[in-house]
Simulated scan of single mutants.
Amino acid sequence: MQAAVYHGQHDVRVQEWPDPPAPAALEVQLEVLRASICGTDVDEFTSGPHLIPLTAPHPASGHVGPLVLGHEMVGRVVAVGARVTEFAAGDVVVPGSGVSCGTCRWCRSGRTNLCATYYTVGLHVDGGLAERVNVPARISRSVGNCPPDVAIMAQPLAVALHAVRGAGAERGARIAVIGLGGIGSLAVAACTARGIDTVGVDVSPARLEAAARSGATVLVNASRQDAAAAIRQATGGDGADIVIETSGTPRGLATAMNAVSRGGHIRLVGLHRDPSPLDLTRLVLDEIRISTSKVHICDQDLPEALALLADHPDIATAAVDSVIGLADIVPGGLARMAAGTAAGKVVIKP
């Protein structure tokens, strides 16, 4: 089969790759209908490997070496493992991205995203930027009435929902979202669906336009104005009650620190690779809370994402920049997203 295989920094090759084996007892094999590129994939492409185990086996998955990218996908079931009863050939499903054990203390408490042996499809084992992929049945959910072009946003929307829920976002809260890539734009959409107004911040006019389509009520171009000052102006001078930071940049974190209100909450979603000094004195004196958000909890966030998309398919429409073929993944996908010229998610049609 054809697959997009990660070999190292700036080295993703669309090449012939072995078909996945027959699914194990609790797995399903999917014919991939749609896949999409995540900011994490772009990060691995531009400056990695950070998460991909190229030179040493991953402690949970055991994989080592080049692998097929892709943890956001929709697929049609073509084969099921011997112990799978919830799906049959022909079903269309969305898998979650993370694989958890189900038995460790974090899994037993419902925090499967913190599993002691957690690993991610498309980062630690072969993923969905290919014609076929094997995934655990227990992290997969039926798309219901969502067509593939809508359901492809379910996994990244689940990530955004997890971030918004953990921030305690409620109607009436003053919320700023810094970084309006795929997850940031979907965080705006998640807030909009809850009736919550948002201030969207980015340096890309294209991403700002995408956030406007997702429902952002105030747009701030951080390349042209003081973003923190603009957020404070938009929130009556007090600052945002909640700042969701998805850019993963020191500048984004500095903006969050300067824009959050007294007693406010900063929710970190983007992965910060660079040292990011914090004004700990202000955090203490103003009782500012910082929390972090890691991917999603499959049982909670993925069904909610699918339900939200079923009711609001325009969320997917607003979030997608383009649909391309697998052969075009580097110039039309990874490179464009790395350059900041993609206005939203780039979807692959294998």
Rank of each mutant, 00 (worst) to 15 (best):
G166R: 14
V28P: 08
C146M: 02
L123D: 05
P57W: 15
P148M: 07
A137R: 03
P20I: 01
L69P: 13
P53C: 10
R336E: 11
V320K: 03
C298Y: 01
G184I: 10
P66S: 13
A79L: 02
G127Y: 05
E170Q: 14
G166S: 06
I196W: 01
A316R: 08
E72L: 07
T317D: 14
V295Y: 14
S276F: 15
S276Y: 11
L114N: 09
N258K: 14
V346N: 15
A88V: 07
L285T: 15
H162K: 06
A206R: 10
R76I: 11
L67E: 02
I288Q: 13
V218R: 13
G248V: 07
G39N: 10
R34C: 08
Q233W: 01
I139W: 11
M257D: 02
A335F: 00
V133M: 03
R267L: 04
L271A: 11
D274H: 13
V323E: 14
G62Q: 06
R132H: 13
L30M: 07
E245W: 00
S36R: 07
S36M: 07
L280R: 04
V64F: 00
P59R: 15
V92K: 04
R267Y: 03
R165D: 14
Q225Y: 09
A158K: 09
A158G: 12
G144T: 05
T55I: 00
